[in-house]
């Protein structure tokens, strides 16, 4: 399988992989290289790049470079945790629903239908209204939004596998449900499930960034790429770099995650064109 994966990486996908690794590195290690603290003004607000300030200053006179180096952790970290959470719960739910096919299945499906009939961002906004704009709320909210999608995919894949001969042979042998799920079903659904990860992670990033952009997630003076863009909108003409740099970073992150995820899915023989990038 590893050979197939590496073989399927087109030049484009390799570029994507390199970019992705770089940005993750930048986000994680960035703060170690920041020349200035993230909330200390170092000069006149909204000045263009000059000596000592590679990308100029923001609307409060803080160093854009430093704030950008600090600003990746939140997006990546929160989106990452939310995605992991969504997968952990979503997989468990999907496996149970798909395999047991008891009352649990239609119940879960109706529940996920309801969740999917509501725009995700709206859901997050409602949650923020009720529970405040903390990191915990953001993570749980994004995870909750993605869970039904993951559960759906896992459930469908589980259903498909559970009618195959070798699964029935195991059932006929009297093997218990946990053993059957673990040995027979799980190894065979990993393909379609992991093919989806790229899209899910991209979406988590987009959601977290959007909420931060709306000023309803992380609050000032925190540094977050989306928040930086949002709070500096008015100063666009004076120092475009304050918008351009974080925007370019977010764009590169999401595009590279998507490209790599797409290539990964393609190596498993699954097309991602049909997957909905739910907004």
């Amino acid at each position: 399988m590893k050979q197939r994966l590496l073989g399927a990486l087109t030049p484009g996908a390799w570029v994507g992989l390199v970019v992705l690794v770089s940005i993750i590195g930048l986000a994680v290690l960035g703060p170690l290289f920041a020349p200035h603290p993230l909330d200390e003004p170092i000069g006149v607000p909204l000045t263009r790049p000059a000596q000592g300030a590679l990308f100029g200053t923001d609307f409060l006179g803080r160093d854009v470079l430093s704030r950008t180096l600090w600003g990746g952790r939140s997006v990546l970290g929160l989106a990452g945790i939310a995605t992991v959470l969504a997968y952990s719960v979503g997989m468990a739910v999907g496996l149970v629903a798909g395999y047991s096919r008891s009352l649990l299945d239609p119940l879960l499906m109706r529940a996920s239908d309801v969740m999917l009939s509501f725009p995700a961002l709206l859901f997050l906004l409602v949650l923020v209204t009720g529970a405040g704009s903390s990191k915990t709320v953001l993570v749980i909210g994004v995870a909750l939004v993605q869970m039904p999608l993951v559960a759906r995919i896992v459930r469908t894949a589980t259903l498909e596998q559970s009618v195959r001969g070798f699964v029935e042979a195991a059932v006929a042998r009297g093997e218990g449900a946990p053993a059957v799920v673990r040995r027979e079903i799980l190894p065979n659904i990993l393909g379609p499930v992991t093919a989806d990860i790229g899209l899910r992670f991209t979406y988590s990033i987009i959601l977290v960034a959007s909420v931060n952009f709306l000023g309803l997630g992380l609050q000032p003076p925190e540094a977050d790429w989306a928040l930086i863009i949002s709070e500096n909108r008015a100063g666009l003409t004076l120092n475009p770099y304050v918008i351009l740099v974080p925007a370019a970073l977010i764009a590169s992150l999401t595009i590279s995650v998507n490209v790599v995820g797409d290539a990964f899915a393609r190596s498993l023989g699954i097309s991602t064109a049909r997957r909905r990038l739910v907004r």
């Binding site: 991209t202 918008i243 977010i250 595009i255």
Partner: peptide, 17 residues
Amino acid sequence: LAIISLPEFIIGSLLIL
């Protein structure tokens, strides 16, 4: 594939730029 990965506010910001 590239555009689909971008959040709206990025597209919008870049367009404004």
